[in-house]
């Protein structure tokens, strides 16, 4: 059976506060799926529901089609980094991995292997209380990899990592996905996922905002926009605005034009004697795409409330 993570119409409230509200999505193997939304959108809650730590009020959260609680030796099916601080400060790093390994009949040597893999071999016998946030994050990732599981879940894995660490985890996520695993990685920073994620599950206020492939999302936001680099910015803006385009300033010598095709922009500027250095299709950043999406979600939510 193909490994998968699946959330079906899940609803979860904590003391009357809705954390997740009718959420459904599926995560497929072989891709890095980014799980994004603002702080408090319900990302961590969804992961806790998938791991059987919390019980949904309604709906199902399934791993490989089963509830987590029914899995045998679950660490060999799913690996998860939820909270890097969930380590006893008095326990040595290796011991933290040993008890987890033994709970699932995983060989002790795996503890040493994953410590090596995350770059903590040198501090294996140090107590976790002395670790920096970045080191605890790596230890949490080591724990997730312990059972060599086909499904992996990481909640904000780059928290506290230095730039080297961030590059390392990107490569790790890509490598895990290319091995055909299910990889779900949450973040509240879109930019972080720009070069890592293949697909995105975007949530806001506990609801699904979008479930889409990253290239499609970028294309939908970048539609019809052209970037113009020119030393004569204000002249160019006047000419193009008069021709009916929407023009926004992007940088000291750059503008983004919407509403006119590139060829027409070139001839208009040429006719007006405005020089330009560059003319190219605008590629939106994931950050912009995200803002666009969540703006929609907020508007939708407001309209929804007005309708009551």
């Amino acid at each position: 059976m193909e490994p998968s993570l699946e959330v079906r119409d899940v609803r979860k409230t904590y003391r009357g506060v809705v954390a997740v509200d009718g959420l459904s999505f599926t995560v497929r193997p072989g891709e890095v799926t980014g799980f994004v939304g603002p702080n408090g959108a319900g990302k961590s809650t969804t992961m806790r529901l998938l791991l059987g730590l919390d019980a949904p009020d309604h709906g199902e959260a399934l791993v490989d089609g089963s509830r987590y609680g029914t899995l045998d030796r679950p660490l060999t099916r799913v690996g998860a980094l939820l909270d890097a601080d969930a380590v006893h400060p008095s326990r040595r790093a290796r011991d933290h991995l040993l008890w987890m390994a033994r709970s699932n009949g995983i060989a002790d040597r795996r503890a040493d292997e994953v410590l090596d893999q995350v770059g903590l071999a040198a501090v294996a016998h140090k107590r976790a209380g002395g670790f920096s946030l970045g080191m605890r994050q790596r230890l949490g990732i080591a724990a997730a990899l312990l059972g060599d599981p086909p499904v992996l879940m990481f909640d904000e894995p780059t928290n506290g990592l230095d730039p080297d660490g961030i590059v390392w985890i990107r490569l790790l996520l890509r490598a895990l996905a290319s091995q055909g695993r299910v990889v779900l990685v949450s973040s509240h920073l879109m930019g972080e996922l720009q070069d890592t994620a293949d697909r995105l599950v975007v949530i806001g206020r506990g609801r699904l905002v979008a479930e889409t492939a990253v290239p499609d999302l970028l294309a939908s936001v970048s539609r019809d926009q052209v970037e113009v680099v020119t030393p004569q910015r204000s002249e160019a803006m006047t000419v193009l605005a008069n021709a009916g385009a929407t023009v926004t300033v992007q940088a000291a010598d750059g503008i983004v034009v919407e509403g006119l095709p590139g060829s027409e922009i070139a001839s208009l500027l040429g006719a007006a004697g405005v020089t330009f250095v560059e003319l190219r299709r605008h590629r939106a950043s994931l950050e912009e795409a995200y803002m666009e999406l969540t703006r929609g979600a907020v508007e939708f939510a407001t309209a929804d409330e007005d309708a009551r």
């Binding site: 899995l71 998860a80 909270d83 601080d85």
Partner: peptide, 18 residues
């Protein structure tokens, strides 16, 4: 209580969900 204080109760219950 050490498990609740340090948060290791979550890895504990993830490792042994029963």
């Amino acid at each position: 209580t050490g498990e609740y204080a340090t948060g290791t109760i979550r890895p504990t219950l993830v490792s042994v969900p029963r």
